[in-house]
Every structure is written in C-alpha cells, then in structure tokens.
Design a protein around this nucleic acid. Structure first.
Length: 237
DNA sequence: TACGTCAATAGGGTAG
DNA sequence: CTACCCTATTGACGTA
C-alpha cells in the first residue's frame, strides 16, 4: 500500500487505496438566534483581522439590541497561512508559542488556541472519513474473497477426494484435519497440536489503528485503544 | 435557498 | 483549582 499526500497542507496522515479519492464534507447545523457575551468578538483597535458585520438591525432588536453591532472574525490569508505553517510544525502550542504567535498575528492568545483546537478537530474528522472509506472498501474486498473461498470449498466438497489434509508449515508434512480449528473471532486456522497459525502479517485494519495511534495528532490520547485480540481466549492468534 | 466552512461557545475530562 | 484538551454544537457567511 502506498502512502500518498492528499492535501499536504492540511493532513499529515494519508491513506491511499487503489481507486480511492477522498471528498471532504463536514456536518453543519442551523439554528436560531442565540447571542452570547463574547469578549473575543469585540473589535480590536488597530488589529489586522477582517471583521464582518454580524447580525442585522432586527437581530439586535430580537437579541437585546444593546451596544454596537457584533462582528464576526474572518482571518486574513496571511494569518491563516502563518497558522497553518505553525500547525505543520506542531499540532499543539505551549503557552509561550501561543503568546508569540498571537502577538505576531495580532490576535488574542485565546483565538490562536481556538484555531488550533478547530484545526485538530478538522484533521481528525478528515482522517476518520478516510479510514471509514478505506474500511468500507476493505470490507467489500473481504466479502468478495469470502464468496470466492466459499465457492472453492463447495467445489472441493463436490469432488469428494477423501479426507482433507493441510500441510504443516513446520515440517511440510500433511497434518490431519482433526487437529485444526478455526478461531471464531478472527477466522484464522490454528493448530490444536501447538503448530503456529499461518499469519500474513498485520491486517489493514491493524495498520490503520496503529497509524492513528502513533500519529502526532493522537499524542494527547489518554487511553490507548485495546485490540480485541488481547483479551481473546484463543491467544494463539 | 440549501449547504459547506469556520470562528466561537459549552461542557466534560484530565494532569499538575 | 487552573489550564489545557476534546467533542458537540451554534450561527454568520460565502457560494453553487
């Protein structure tokens, strides 16, 4: 599997699957007029932010109508560029970095903090969407392979060529089928006489979860994900 | 006008 | 308790 950059400026972790292109769509919501007390939304004096008028005269009437009309901050291209640049270097900021960046951008430290929070959330959402897409495709291919194997089993059964035998991976001798069992969870064949199961390495799912866990974005995760096999009774697999 | 984007808030969790 | 993080949500704005 190749790792290709999808949107280098936005995502560090990317997953590439043959024929897969990711389209980002974010959930949105609509709601009524709920005005909050935002010190953050007060127009800064001499700042370089793009402040857009927020709410109409009716809105003000409905929501109190006290004080100057609220404005919504839109970061300038330069501010966004600097923030992105900083995000590429570090997904989290220490207080010193935050202060410096805020000073540099003529924003409040809280605004820088919020931007980084939202940026991390967007990154994670995109990652999740990509993983979801990938898992769907993987499921499809597994279903297809399962069908193919089922057909093969049927064909072999139809042939009726004596008791089935499996070659031992150790001695290359045929093993009696009675010593083989199927792990109900992972559906891999294991030997009851101590022979190791045939493992082709980590599954794509494991690759994904381990990638997610080791990604810098997950550095603040408190509890690592536990793979279900860790608690599975048939620890052989 | 519906929908996507994004700055911002609320609220819950955790480390120090 | 404080400061930080994450997640869910809100609401203004841009645009197809």
């Amino acid at each position: 599997m190749a790792i290709l950059p999808v949107t280098p400026s936005c995502l560090e972790l990317t997953i590439s699957v043959a024929g897969f292109t990711s389209s980002s769509s974010f959930p949105s919501s609509e709601g009524g007029c709920v005005m909050r007390d935002l010190d953050i939304n007060q127009v800064p004096s001499g700042g370089e932010e793009e402040w857009v008028m927020m709410g109409s005269a009716e809105d003000e009437e409905e929501c109190g109508g006290r004080g100057p009309p609220r404005k919504k901050l839109r970061l300038t291209k330069e501010q966004s560029r600097l923030l992105e640049e900083s995000f590429r270097e570090n997904h989290t900021l220490n207080p010193k970095q935050k202060e410096t960046l805020a000073l540099q951008l003529k924003l409040k430290p809280r605004q820088v903090e919020v931007w980084f929070q939202n940026r991390r959330a967007r990154t994670k959402l995109k990652q999740t969407e990509m993983e979801c897409e990938y898992l769907k495709r993987w499921f499809g291919s597994l279903t297809e392979e399962n069908r193919r194997l089922q057909r093969e089993v049927e064909e072999l059964r139809a042939m009726r060529v004596g008791p089935p035998t499996v070659m031992s991976p150790h001695s290359c001798e045929p093993m009696p089928a009675s010593t083989l069992t199927m792990c109900p969870r992972c559906e891999r064949v294991t030997s009851t006489n101590g022979a190791p199961s045939v493992d082709k390495g980590p599954t794509p799912l494991r690759a994904i979860t381990s990638m997610a866990f080791h990604h810098p974005n997950s550095m603040n995760r408190k509890t690592p994900p536990v793979h279900h096999h860790a608690r599975h009774p048939s620890a052989a697999c």
